[in-house]
Simulated scan of single mutants.
Amino acid sequence: MEHNAKREWPPALVDPTGRREAKPRDAGLTMVIDKGLGLRAFEDMIRLAAPYIDVVKLGFGTSALYPEELLVRKIEAAREAGVHVMPGGTFLEVAVTQQLVDAFLDTAKAYGFTALEVSDGTIELNRDQRSALIVKSIDAGFTVFTEYGKKLFGSTIEWEELARTVEIDTGLGASFVTIEARESGKGVGIFDENGECKTDDVEAIMNAVPNRHALMWEAPLKSQQTELLQALGPNVNIGNVAPEDALSLEALRRGLRSDTFHLGKQAKV
């Protein structure tokens, strides 16, 4: 065996599927949810996994609770690594109820956030209000991710309504529409009370929504991520991924784990 080999894995070992694209990409996005990482842990995550993370969401309203300097440094670290960073959609919902949307947008811009999540998982927004928030956020310079579905346990997906929402939201300029599953991944949207994927619902959604790459599926559990990858391929958009799972999800996408080994191209013997 030669001992002067290059310290570089052959491409077919790095990505046996041969289908993963480098950033920036329009499909196969990974959105990580940060529920309160310290600065060192956040920087470690970015240093290790930035090529495999497209968006970091500072979950719910945690952005309001950070010391100013720490929040700025986290946002700067993400931006320098080419990772979108956004506050959680629930925080914008708070701004709506407090009639402070303009102040929210101004402050988010001042901190350096690059994206926003427009949602109504807890409050009720009519179509005109939702559309206005999308347009206002884009006009303010943010990349917009919208979210469909309610956070209430037992809530389900109305396929035709979802298809209409995707058509209108993306027509207004939203980049992706996220299907709600909360950070628990249980009892909401396409997942039952045990976190099991309702495969019939996934199939119905894919039949109802013409542009599958406009969808991002919240799937915090490994079993859920595996099912979506098996059903929809390595370039499905997956959100609400735990920071410690960013690298392992990428391994799943590439067929580098037993669960998705079959996704890799098999060389002829």
Rank of each mutant, 00 (worst) to 15 (best):
32 V>T: 07
137 S>H: 04
184 S>R: 11
34 D>Q: 01
20 R>C: 06
108 A>D: 09
16 P>Q: 01
70 L>R: 09
61 G>H: 09
95 A>M: 04
230 Q>A: 07
220 P>R: 11
156 T>N: 13
45 M>H: 07
154 G>E: 06
177 V>Y: 11
14 V>Q: 06
190 I>V: 14
109 K>N: 13
107 T>N: 13
162 L>W: 01
191 F>L: 06
95 A>V: 02
44 D>Q: 10
259 D>F: 08
186 K>Y: 09
116 L>P: 02
95 A>N: 05
110 A>P: 14
8 E>I: 15
176 F>G: 07
199 T>C: 15
148 Y>P: 00
39 L>V: 08
266 Q>S: 03
84 H>I: 00
152 L>P: 01
205 I>Q: 02
194 N>D: 15
87 P>E: 04
235 N>D: 08
252 L>E: 06
149 G>K: 00
82 G>M: 00
164 R>E: 07
53 I>K: 04
235 N>G: 06
119 S>M: 08
155 S>D: 04
263 L>F: 02
247 L>C: 07
202 V>R: 08
2 E>N: 15
266 Q>G: 03
185 G>P: 11
209 V>E: 09
205 I>C: 05
83 V>S: 00
183 E>I: 08
43 E>C: 09
40 R>N: 04
3 H>E: 15
197 C>V: 15
137 S>E: 05
235 N>A: 09
236 V>I: 07
121 G>L: 12
159 W>N: 12
74 K>M: 02
121 G>V: 07
54 D>V: 10
66 Y>A: 00
205 I>D: 03
111 Y>L: 14
43 E>N: 10
48 L>C: 10
142 F>A: 08
233 G>E: 00
168 I>D: 13
265 K>W: 00
2 E>L: 15
21 E>A: 10
86 M>T: 04
82 G>A: 01
171 G>A: 06
19 R>S: 03
253 R>M: 08
178 T>W: 05
189 G>Q: 06
246 A>H: 03
215 L>C: 15
161 E>P: 01
229 L>Q: 02
123 I>K: 12
230 Q>G: 12
156 T>L: 13
243 P>V: 02
8 E>W: 14
195 G>F: 12
134 I>E: 04
242 A>L: 10
255 G>T: 05
237 N>E: 06
69 E>R: 14
28 G>S: 11
212 R>H: 15
33 I>C: 10
24 P>D: 00
198 K>W: 15
75 I>Y: 05
125 L>H: 13
50 A>P: 09
117 E>R: 08
33 I>K: 03
268 K>N: 02
71 L>H: 04
100 L>M: 15
147 E>S: 10
249 L>D: 04
5 A>Y: 12
75 I>L: 05
16 P>A: 01
162 L>S: 01
141 G>P: 07
57 K>R: 09
13 L>F: 10
129 Q>K: 11
191 F>V: 07
185 G>H: 08
47 R>P: 02
220 P>A: 10
188 V>T: 12
65 L>K: 03
66 Y>R: 02
241 V>N: 00
243 P>I: 01
124 E>Q: 15
25 R>H: 01
30 T>I: 13
56 V>K: 03
138 I>R: 08
71 L>M: 10
10 P>C: 07
133 L>R: 02
159 W>M: 09
116 L>W: 03
